[in-house]
Design a protein around this nucleic acid. Sequence first.
DNA 1: GATGAATGAGGCTTCATTCAT
DNA 2: CATGAATGAAGCCTCATTCAT
Lengths: 208, 208, 208, 208
Amino acid sequence: MKGEKTKQRVLEAASDLFWSRSFHSVSVADVAAAASVNKATLYQYFDSKEALGRAVVIDARRRTIDFVFEGAWAQADEPLDRLKAIYERVYGSQQAAYDCSGEARGCPFVNIAMEMAIENKSVRDEVRQTQEAFGAYYARILRALAPGPLPRDAEERAVAALVRNMNGAMVAARIEQRPEALLEAAETAVFIAQSAVASAAAPTSPAP
Amino acid sequence: MKGEKTKQRVLEAASDLFWSRSFHSVSVADVAAAASVNKATLYQYFDSKEALGRAVVIDARRRTIDFVFEGAWAQADEPLDRLKAIYERVYGSQQAAYDCSGEARGCPFVNIAMEMAIENKSVRDEVRQTQEAFGAYYARILRALAPGPLPRDAEERAVAALVRNMNGAMVAARIEQRPEALLEAAETAVFIAQSAVASAAAPTSPAP
Amino acid sequence: MKGEKTKQRVLEAASDLFWSRSFHSVSVADVAAAASVNKATLYQYFDSKEALGRAVVIDARRRTIDFVFEGAWAQADEPLDRLKAIYERVYGSQQAAYDCSGEARGCPFVNIAMEMAIENKSVRDEVRQTQEAFGAYYARILRALAPGPLPRDAEERAVAALVRNMNGAMVAARIEQRPEALLEAAETAVFIAQSAVASAAAPTSPAP
Amino acid sequence: MKGEKTKQRVLEAASDLFWSRSFHSVSVADVAAAASVNKATLYQYFDSKEALGRAVVIDARRRTIDFVFEGAWAQADEPLDRLKAIYERVYGSQQAAYDCSGEARGCPFVNIAMEMAIENKSVRDEVRQTQEAFGAYYARILRALAPGPLPRDAEERAVAALVRNMNGAMVAARIEQRPEALLEAAETAVFIAQSAVASAAAPTSPAP
DNA sequence: GATGAATGAGGCTTCATTCAT
DNA sequence: CATGAATGAAGCCTCATTCAT
């Protein structure tokens, strides 16, 4: 019981630090200090730094799905409103981090994946699954938006485009230190979704 | 004279390693070994690992502009063909890396920027400038594509969307280990460009 | 509890090595080896080599005051006997080092201060304070020796002369590798003290 | 001919740096840079850093004898005036360094000897000989001051006391960053000299 | 459940020195 | 006479990790 709380503290500290800086430039000592925990204690909950990294990804995925996607669903009913809500919610957390620490941090998943994609397949796969989980929500939006059923590959292509669009926005936010990039990308997202549905209805024009 | 060659060897080795793995998981010793150079020699050409990172970004920018953008211009004349050529050329180098090392590496600029955006402003700024340089090429495409002059902010928004689109594709390539993500994103890029121009012609609907 | 002992071992090893050789020609690895401690362990107790240097000075000050000055006070009652006892005790430790290692090492404070005075103000200041602490003992001797109260500046000048005398003797011991320099300087010290008091009594002739 | 000038430049740069900082905290690269000379060139004139250190001592000795001691002889005729002139001249160069670089540097010989006494016998011996050379001048003063011939050992003791006195003053100047320590020590020097001669005249009381 | 103490390996950087030109 | 280029060794310090308590 008590241990669970400690573990959570470590997880939060690690999430925060890995997100802000990077996996490799944060030391286990940094995490332990931020969590007010002894390093040895940390190792009782996580087998290695790598395992901690993986756990962070998994935990962030859960929280992101809850807050961003489920939140968007709860907040709006129309598919495009939900899409916009997703971006607004992401924008909100970028802005919150920016206000609190002066940093637009971008995407925790993209960040760690760009860093570890080659050296650590397990983290990369965890991020890949995360993105697929997000994609499932985009697919639901597309289906709700379409008058009839979308062709399988048209949907897949549109989902992939939406995932890429979010990631591109997150990259921009971090490089330019501008949370607003999320809001700007929201328009592109709406556009991608609309066009995918439209071009499925009239399959003569190319899908995005 | 001889030193210039050594410096170049170091730069190439560092580019390759930082791109494939990451800045922090490659040691100066790794770079020196890959360049067949003594560590101390490396430090005669670069003041610090950070300076090497910056130099790598600057060098990669030059090469990317030459090979990808100027190459696309030389290769095709029509704006949309040039846009497609950009993505094809990027796809080509992703695929080349993939064939040679089994890795889809994504974008050297995005990779290093995601890793160092917060801890190292100078590298982040170098990447930001790089993306702006790329943006200038996208702007030229948009202008060539438009029947009349685009409103300033419409162009800016479309350029930003194109930059995000490329970055999103690069992220996908690295996370999914699939160079083809570039080809798929090319379609979205064409779409973004066309719509920007179209909506500028008929300013009633919003640009993406 | 256990750590305190380790820290002390490091401190003793560092004291010994810095005293014998010099701050810059002793490496952290040397100290760690001499203390049978891992380098990383050493850094758990001292933030940096410089901090270790400072700690060594502070520790040596404490030990010197205990052994030399308080020891002299305990050993003798008459002011001049105490002054002589100071030099004898210092001579004793020079001779002890000489017997044990074949080196007349001079003054740990002077040695490190000569080396680091310019580059490291904090060490220099620590040494300066050390010398002032020693000066306080000399002042007590002078006051006990004088029939009446000494003028403030006469006392100060005599104290400074006594400090310089000790330092000069320590320098001689190290340069000439002769602990006996301390015994010879003891006579000069007595002489300086006597004259200071005498000239204060008959203020016509200048104090040394 | 041209080479001699280069060598001299190196010697001066090294003298300056070793004096200000310390032998071990100045690198060969520092010296070469300060002398505007390539490192390899430096090694054409000096076999090793140690040899450079030795050469610096020897060169500084020559210059000190010229400027301080011979200068004092040329400047004054009376023995005590010469003694005072020695201290004034030394004070002058301390003050000059202080004005120019903000550092009271103390004695180049004491500084390097304290640092290298144990690890490098050859430098230590060079300094020892330097001090003996200085002692010869003090002996001349004592002899000129005495009405009759001084006993051999009385002279030796007084000379040693004078050498120690100068060194103690130099230590004070560097530790306290106060060139004036030299002027204060001059009084003690005069006092030591006078007493040595006096006690030799009336051999009942002990010499300092 | 938690921690203070310890460590081998490795991080980045600089050292004194050499050699071909 | 002078130098640009190169290097093995060593500098200080931090890393992720373990273990006894």
